[in-house]
Each structure stands twice: as structure tokens, then as C-alpha cells.
Amino acid sequence: MKTLTKTIILLVVSICFIGCNNSAKSSDSGTTSSDEGRASQKSGQAFIKDEGGTPNALQLAISSEDHTTLVAAVQAAEVENALVNVGPLTVFAPNNAAFAKIDEATLNSLLEPENKSKLAFILTHHVAPANYPIETLKKNATKGRKLYMASGKYLEVTEKDGSMYVDGIKILGTVNVSNGWVHVTESVILPRD
């Protein structure tokens, strides 16, 4: 009899749970997590569909054929949301040729899941939470102002023969994006220590 009672109670409790379930309607899209409190890899500002208008830093990188390695790295490190934030941001974006200068074994090991935090650190070393168009970089060089990067470290800006350099790495071109500036660089900027 005890078992029966237990069974009934259990049954009733489960009915109660079902009946009282006020949980969110299941999401139509399937891929997005309904649990926004803990942003999964596919939620957040980076995944807002936003047609038209000036692209942000991430959208620009994704649309560029010369930055497929950078995009792969950003995705491996799961730092997409940092590149679409309201910022303002200044991103130094090494092109594919820049990544090719790193030996393949090192590069591949960085893309391994266990090295995610190391990769993220290197990538954030390419992002300054500031608005630095090329004119401001020139002023920074003249006035000796360093760039504070999202890695927590600083980059030195110099000007030589009309070109701008960060930590000795040449800037090849500049694009204005909706949340700041993207400067294409000829090499990956590896933190000094």
C-alpha cells in the first residue's frame, strides 16, 4: 500500500509540474538558446541580423577574403561579441598573409580548444577600447601616447616614411566601421611577454 501511495503522490506531483509549467515557448529558430542569462556561443549582439547600414568590425572581417584566418581565430576563441560592441573600438586586423608568417604547427595549436584562452588573449591584444582613426594614431605618435589594448597591455605607435606602425608592425590600410576603426596590419601583434 505504501508503494501505491507513493506512486499516486509521484503521479500527482508530476501532473502538477506539467500543469504549472510557465516556461518559455520553445524557440522557433532552434539554434538559439532560450536561456539568455548565460549567453551561449550563438547569442548576443554578434548574432543580431542587421541588414543595411555601415558594417561593424566583425561584419567587415567576415566579408573580407583577406581575413579568413582572423575570422576563424575569432570564432575559435569565441570573442565575436567583443567586436560588435558599441565600443568605440579600434581593431588591428592581421590579414591572411600575416597569419601565414606564423609557423603552421603553432597556428594550428592555437586553434585547438584547449588553447582558447591563449588565443583570446592574443586577439584581444589587437583591440583597443578607443576611437583611433589614422589622424589620431599620428597624433599619438607625435605626442608619445601609447595605446591601451583590451589585453591589458600597451602598444607603441610610431610613424616612419609616412606609414604608421604599432609595435613595429606596419598598418597597410584603414576602414571606418560602425563601431570604430579597423587597421589592417602586415603581421600578427604578439604580446611582448
Binding site: C16, G19, C20, N21, N22, A24, K25, S27, T32, S34, E36, G37, S43
Partner: peptide
């Protein structure tokens, strides 16, 4: 007791459907 979604207007409906669910729009939706 536990399904107390009833309100002044309609005391009988609470058991048959969840009113809260009908007005709940999940975060981001």
C-alpha cells in the same frame, strides 16, 4: 495552491490553461 494563477476575473480558468504562459514573451523575443 501551487498553480495559483487565478485572478479576480476568472477563478475557474487556472486549472485548464496557464494565463501566465499566454502573456509571457521570453527574453529576446
Amino acid at each position: 495552491v501551487s498553480c495559483g494563477n487565478s485572478n479576480d476575473g476568472d477563478k475557474s480558468g487556472a486549472l485548464t490553461s496557464s494565463k501566465a504562459e499566454k502573456v509571457y514573451v521570453a527574453p529576446g523575443e
